[in-house]
Computed example of a mutant assay.
Amino acid sequence: MGFHTYDVDRADALEDPDRFRYCSAEELRAALAVDTDATVADLGSGTGFYTDVVAPHVARCYAVDVQAAMHDLHREKPVPASVEFVTAGVADLPFADDALDAAFSTMTYHEYASDAALAELSRVVRPGGRVVTVDWTATGTGESGPPTDERFALGAAVSAFESAGFTVERAQTRVETFLLVARR
């Protein structure tokens, strides 16, 4: 797999509203299914495209990205009051055990997928909490997103989450992407 980070010089593409064709704001919030007092994290938040559609509906939304430059770009927009920026990799999150009610990632799982990252999610997401993952599928055409050899098939992602102690509640393949909802 690629295990790369998104090129900051191309970050303007992350603000393209056409991205909602892969996962709408409503679908993401419905999959998270959290209360308004929830604490959630956007894993690989980039410029905050999806962070900003979740954050107004929760008490705290951590925008987690390994690249501080992405946070700088996010700050150039109006940032919802509930957003807190965290510069970290998913395998090394600076949160206490069971600190998150939920976490989500959109088009970034292929960048951090590892046993260490999923173990870390298992540590920081509270029992009963959800992790929602929308990512490019290995069975896609490759017309959008990373090359298909840098992607995961839905079955591999399901197996990885189950091996990390999650229960997969929903797993769906789409044309270029998959949606996975796992509960700790």
Rank of each mutant, 00 (worst) to 15 (best):
D98E: 15
T87Q: 13
L100C: 05
V54Q: 10
L43G: 02
V34N: 09
V54C: 13
V79C: 07
V58H: 10
L32A: 11
V66D: 09
D92Q: 09
H74L: 15
Y62C: 06
A99R: 00
A91G: 08
G48P: 00
L100A: 04
A81K: 11
E84S: 08
P56M: 07
D42H: 00
G44M: 07
F49A: 12
D37H: 12
T47D: 12
A55D: 12
V54Y: 06
T47F: 08
A88F: 07
V53Q: 10
R60L: 13
S82C: 08
D65P: 01
F49T: 06
D35M: 10
H74Y: 13
Y62Q: 05
T106D: 04
F49H: 10
G46P: 15
A69E: 15
V58D: 05
D37K: 11
V90R: 01
A96E: 14
P56H: 08
S82M: 06
A30K: 13
F49C: 03
F95E: 05
D42I: 15
L43T: 01
V86L: 01
L93M: 04
Q67H: 04
A31Q: 09
T39R: 04
D35C: 15
L73G: 11
P94E: 09
V83E: 03
V79E: 10
R60N: 06
A99E: 13
A102D: 04
L73V: 06
L73Q: 11
H71D: 15
T51P: 10
S105F: 03
A38W: 10
P94H: 04
D92H: 11
D72L: 14
T108A: 15
V86D: 00
K77L: 14
V58R: 08
K77D: 13
A96I: 09
D92C: 03
R29F: 06
L93N: 02
A38Q: 11
S45A: 13
A59W: 03
F49R: 07
P78T: 15
A69Q: 15
M107S: 05
A68F: 02
L32W: 12
A88I: 01
